[in-house]
Design a protein around this nucleic acid. Structure first.
Length: 376
RNA sequence: GAGGUUGUAGCUCAGUCGGUUAGAGCGCUAGUUUGUGGCACUAGAGGCCGGGGGUUCGAGACCCCUCAUCCUCC
């Protein structure tokens, strides 16, 4: 993997760059659609590429390990061979499931014991095991196994957890660096900064993570319920320390406003389930603001879903029709809304990149934050 | 015409021996969702209990009349 920095904004820390992988290039800042189970829910791969213009997608280690399982993925030639997405892929390590499946797992120094949400069976995830699994899944970018701490989190827990995440990182790196990719293209490992909402912990973590000199670095443990201002503050502290010549990935963020604010704070990569999950629940993002399309006010609104959209179906179909599809629980409703939301997110980061290069990012961003926050 | 059935929220229906402020599901109206177990979750509005009269301290429930409904028979 290779990262080139094209331009840095003069008034903010925003950057425009280029990531080159064996499965193609990624223009940053970028939003990465989440495809937990080897599918971005409700979207076909050709739509991801041709309509949404996605440049990289996510998968999830925990979910893919349980289903379809490593045998199937290995025989398919890895995730790319399995789902037909030929672009770059990033897999999350399962660290988030340490947080989200808190009721059915146990954390120890050695690793985490999960109880499968599918059949209740027990599975042990260790840093070494998670590296091996991600080798088998075959993502271009793989993530270190960490603990994503909850919010709020007391200092003592956050510090102990952070220390363990750092010990786990060492084990991840040792394992990753002593193994080879399975499918003939290269993989790279991103470590993850933790430290909850404590500035001193975040600083320590950013210094340790940066010192490994990996090809990219991530920030985790945010957007777990803390106020947005606190998330911005932590992001700012960390991007001040992380190496400038490596991409920074802010995990799990966020709303369109969050993304704009964090681009301004020096983030290059984002992923979030919000555009896809909200789409399935009738919340539609447009360049003019947010539409709750199930609301009665759209019943006879025959304007396009988003006249400015890069997605063809959003220009063809009306808000009234989309509302009708949702009210009837029709599958097409979720498809159209997901296309629109992802298309919008990709459009947003592309515009951000354009304005960083043009040199007017700061003023554009301030206006856009207001615009995308409107409720229509 | 005779005998019977059923009338409770927009719809389908619960409602115990007559006892506090009449409930549910769906629908409707809104809200929530941030490295995706969950087309999910949370909340709200909505009632002359067909109508009238009676019994009773107290009636959605019991009695009488009436209207509507559906069924059976002539």
């Amino acid at each position: 993997m290779k990262f080139t920095l094209d331009q840095t904004d003069s008034k903010t820390r925003a950057r425009a760059g280029l990531i080159e992988t064996d499965h193609g290039v990624i223009e940053t800042p970028i939003f990465m659609p989440v495809g937990t189970a080897a599918t971005v829910k409700a979207v076909h791969q050709h739509e991801l590429r041709d309509e949404i213009k996605a440049q990289i997608c996510l998968g999830n280690t925990y979910h893919l390990y349980l289903r379809p399982g490593l045998d199937v993925l290995s025989q398919a030639g890895g995730i790319h061979g399995f789902n037909g997405w030929k672009g770059p892929v990033l897999t999350d390590s399962g660290g988030y499931q340490v947080y989200s499946l808190a009721g059915t797992r146990k954390i120890k120094e050695e690793g985490v014991t999960f109880q499968s949400h599918i059949d209740g069976s027990k599975h042990v995830f260790t840093p070494e095991g998670v590296m091996d699994i991600q080798r088998t899944i075959g993502a271009d970018i793989i993530m270190a196994f960490d603990e994503c701490t909850p919010y709020p989190c007391d200092f003592k827990y956050a510090k102990n957890s952070l220390d363990m995440t750092h010990r786990w990182l060492k084990r991840c790196i040792d394992r990753f660096d002593s193994t080879e990719p399975h499918y003939g293209y290269s993989q790279t490992l991103f470590p993850i900064v933790q430290g909850s909402t404590y500035p001193e912990l975040r600083k320590i973590s950013a210094e340790i993570i940066g010192s490994y000199g990996r090809e990219g670095n991530a920030i985790g443990g945010l957007s777990v319920g803390e106020p947005a201002e606190e998330m911005y503050a932590m992001t700012e502290i960390v991007t001040e320390i992380l190496p400038l010549d490596k991409p920074r990935y802010l995990m799990g963020v966020g709303t369109p406003q969050n993304i704009l604010e964090c681009i301004a704070r020096g983030i290059d990569m984002f992923d979030c389930v919000l555009p896809t999950r909200n789409a399935r629940h009738g919340v539609v993002y447009t360049s003019q603001g947010v539409i709750h399309v199930k609301n009665a006010k759209w019943k006879t609104n025959f304007d396009p879903i988003d006249a400015e959209s890069s997605v063809e179906t959003s220009k063809i179909h009306s808000r009234a029709y989309l509302r009708h599809l949702f009210v009837n629980n029709e599958i097409l409703g979720m498809q159209l809304a997901t296309l629109q939301n992802l298309g919008f997110y990709l459009w947003l980061v592309k515009e951000a990149r354009k304005h960083i290069i043009q040199g007017d990012f700061s003023t554009w961003k301030d206006a856009m934050v207001v615009q995308v926050g409107n409720k229509l």
